[in-house]
Design a protein around this nucleic acid. Structure first.
Lengths: 325, 325
DNA sequence: CTGAAAGCGCTTACAG
DNA sequence: CTGAAAGCGCTTACAG
């Protein structure tokens, strides 16, 4: 091409000059660099990937951009991947559509791996990716019987810990605000919470659906807290909902944490805001992202070890929204 | 390739079968589709783009993922672009690093266009993109003397409108919480605000830097509101900061809006939350995104009309944080 | 260390 | 409508 001619070398030479560790003499290296600079030349990553069979692109599928937890994951993942010379091809699941409709597009772009966060995929699609040799990493999701990697927080353990702390602090009446019924996060947190309470002899728990949204939880809160025997300790399946719930309590003039304890999950930045000062279970984003990056960047092993699972324990962040021991 | 052999046709035929509007007989079409399905074949978009010289990828560079306004833009832009069969290659500017270091990577991937949001680029880099024929769209940014498209809100007009409303409502002492000094958004909003106040004969305005963050504005709020003659109407350069400022007022026991009016900018979802009920200037995200999409998807015109500017007027969203007429 | 040649998986004139 | 051939911009054995 152009650069080769200007530098007076072969095309192979310029290729080698841009390949770290390739065998080129210093002289050639210099000539090529000079010519490249003069022409403003940069290797074409697309053409390169065609021959190397690696695009260095990872497909990232996201469903919920409204939850700061996931946008934080998105930011951290992008930065870490770039640091390792991987690019992120982003796919936003349109409202009302499924991930499965999107996957064919991401596969067309020959991504080296797919990370799915804030949404889930079907088992069939998981197998399709497996057949094509494209690793899939599920972030905070589980799809049974599907050959994917999983990076997740131990949601069950988190819910259980919340139950124990709240019960040990002497609360008597409990409530739970659920997220979407079809997400493993909400289901597992609920199971853990209920199970923890059960071990303290508590089996009656008020429960409302908050749809993983501020507004849904606000409405659930008004309903739950206006009832005759309202709960005095409530666990919300994520922070966004805990904030909606706290605002409902505020509107009803219920003092937090004196008359009501509220605990969330995630520890999004807003949880630390003064208006809420939310006690919550922190998901270790940095570690989760690091594991995801590791899974994405590790060379495809002949061993076909395609079901690695990384599970992290959430950590209590005690602020002022709950009365604990 | 595989599919061609199985279908018993030429490679050209399978290419045509996957090209809308190409001249193929129904019979061939059928055969190819069948073979493709049997083999799980999907055209390789990377190989295709090498020959067509269009990747259908747009590079999206984002700096600030902590501001919900920009993640909303990100989500909307991704969805709209996908609907038009464009993919988004996402670049997050690492903290402390500049956009310029990132651009070479995005150019290597031969993106059809670059959208820059929540951060800015140097004029030199703008010219480099121009030289390579890659259109650049600045979202809510301005870089003087650079050949880029611009999609922006009229920040000056917005600031001015806030000033007028606040002055007409009878407020006497004013404050401004600035964002980053090197962003055109903060500068223009400030200029508009000050200019609007000046036309009402007000020239003394208290001013603090909130660094476009909740915490920065919270601290600025404590300082500004603890002073002897504290302002009674404060304009914050964005909503995140207005929330920090409101929490500062709350902590100091200052009644809003009776003793203090606060106005933000953006209308992020959290502005509607009960704890804040923030009066703010709404940026018309949908229209801004639509214009961006138009710029990205319109065919490169021979006219080289490469400095289109779309400017939108922000719109008042009156809630309960400010006393207005 | 270096170059000529083949090939990655497509599309697109060009003939037929 | 259809196929053979060339070519997009690279990398990588293979000889030298």
């Amino acid at each position: 091409m152009e650069v080769a001619r200007l530098a007076g070398v072969s095309q192979s030479a310029v290729s080698r000059a841009f390949t770290p560790g390739a065998s080129v003499s210093d002289a050639t290296q210099q000539k090529v660099r000079a010519a490249a600079k003069a022409l403003g030349y940069q290797p074409n990553a697309i053409a390169r990937s065609l021959i190397t069979q690696r695009t260095n692109i990872v497909g990232l599928v996201m469903g919920d951009f409204a939850n700061p937890f996931y946008t934080e994951v998105l930011a951290a993942l992008s930065v870490e991947l770039q640091l390792r010379e991987r690019q992120v091809l982003l796919f936003a699941v349109p409202p009302g559509r499924g991930v499965d409709e999107l996957l064919p597009f991401v596969l067309q772009y020959q991504v080296d791996a797919i990370v799915i966060a804030a949404t889930t995929l079907s088992s069939a699609m998981g197998w399709e990716c497996h057949r094509r040799g494209t690793p899939v990493i599920l972030f905070n999701r589980m799809v049974p019987d599907t050959p994917t990697h999983v990076v997740t927080t131990d949601n069950f353990a988190g819910g259980m810990q919340v139950a124990q702390m709240l019960a040990e602090a002497g609360h008597k009446r409990f409530g739970y605000i659920a997220g979407h019924a079809d997400t493993s996060t909400s289901i597992d947190r609920e199971r853990g919470f209920f199970s923890g309470l059960r071990s303290h002899g508590i089996t009656t728990i008020q429960r409302h659906d908050g749809r993983y949204s501020y507004r849904g939880a606000f409405e659930a809160g008004i309903a739950m807290l206006s009832a005759r025997r309202r709960p005095e300790a409530v666990f919300c399946a994520n922070d966004m909902m805990a904030m909606g719930f706290l605002d409902a309590a505020r509107q009803l003039g219920i003092a937090v944490p004196d008359e009501l304890s509220v605990v969330g999950f995630d520890d999004i930045p807003q949880a630390a805001w003064d208006a809420y000062s939310l006690t919550t279970m922190r998901q270790p984003i940095d570690q989760m992202v690091a594991s995801t990056v590791e899974l994405v960047t590790k060379p495809a092993d002949g061993a076909r070890n395609d079901r690695a699972t990384f599970t992290f324990l959430p950590q209590l962040v005690a602020r002022r929204s709950a009365r604990l021991l």
